[in-house]
């Protein structure tokens, strides 16, 4: 058979496919090799044999369980408060103040510019004395820490929410709901939130991942969070930190999976944007 132009195209396509696979493999190795190294190391606490001793030690440590639970709860609180603050704001900007969007975007980028260490010293300076002495009691310090987390996660949450809002016709959906008698609360919770759910989820994942590993704020505010615990272990043990890294990775993924599972609760919603 004579080589046709089509045949050539197919050959080129195949080549491109091979290259694509090559890069994917390279990327995967970049992430997986260190992970495997850590995993392998974590199994070698007993000399000469592979064992789960390091894992047993970690799991037996009550500080591990307590600090992870603490950070997971902080992450959930951060997600809820962050979304309740950012979704209505981003929605209102989309609906009524599109011209201030660049300004809002700039503000949400501040956590990238101001390092966490500066943020926490600012918080401590302002809130450790009157009139708002929050650092004097644990619950209030927890609250302060959560507020710090909301700020840290803002760039990610805002960007996800903004992308979600761009994907729907915010203005027309709002007007349709208004003409049917809906007020702002109903519009936000029955129309806007459900229709940007995927965006909310990705914002929530990122927030969760950030809060779970966060060290600076928690440490300087003296809260028993997971980040400081990780650092403490890293400084004092050899094999356990490796086991801890693997466990926290697994737990983070499990928690993210759980969020996804919970928010998939309403039947039928997965079909949105499906069959035409």
């Amino acid at each position: 058979m004579a080589p046709t132009p089509n045949g050539k195209v197919a050959a080129v396509k195949k080549k491109i496919n091979l290259w694509a696979w090559f890069w994917i493999l390279l990327g995967a190795l970049y992430f997986l090799v260190p992970l495997y190294g850590t995993f392998d190391f974590s199994l070698r606490e007993k000399r000469g044999v592979l064992s789960l001793l390091a894992y047993q030690n970690v799991l037996a440590d009550p500080r591990f369980r307590d600090s992870f639970t603490y950070s997971a709860l902080m992450a959930l609180a951060t997600i809820v408060v962050g979304l309740l603050l950012i979704v209505p704001t981003a929605y209102w900007v989309h609906l009524r103040l599109p011209q201030v969007r660049p300004l809002i975007e700039f503000i949400t980028l501040m956590p990238f510019v101001v390092p966490a260490i500066v943020l926490v010293f600012g918080l401590i300076r302002i809130y450790s004395g009157p009139p708002l002495a929050l650092t004097n009691s644990d619950p209030l310090t927890n609250f302060l820490l959560m507020c710090g987390y909301v700020i840290l996660s803002m760039p990610y949450t805002y960007r996800s929410v903004d992308t979600g809002l761009r994907a729907i016709d915010v203005r027309t959906l709002t007007e349709a709901a208004q003409s049917l008698g809906a007020g702002w609360f109903t519009i936000l919770f029955r129309i806007i939130f459900p229709n940007i759910r995927a965006a909310l989820l990705s914002g929530a994942f990122l927030t969760f991942a950030i809060v779970i590993g966060e060290f600076t704020l928690a440490s300087l505010l003296g809260r028993p969070a997971f980040g400081p615990y990780l650092v403490y272990m890293g400084n004092n043990r050899a094999y356990e930190p490796a086991a801890l890294a693997i466990i926290s990775l697994a737990l983070t993924w499990a928690a993210i999976g759980l969020i996804q599972l919970l928010s998939h609760g309403r039947p039928g919603q997965e079909q949105v944007g499906g069959v035409h």
Partner: peptide, 14 residues
């Protein structure tokens, strides 16, 4: 008490 129909339908996708 006014009903409105839009060019883009504006049905609630969820």
């Amino acid at each position: 008490n006014v009903g409105m129909v839009f060019q883009s339908y504006a049905l609630f996708p969820n």
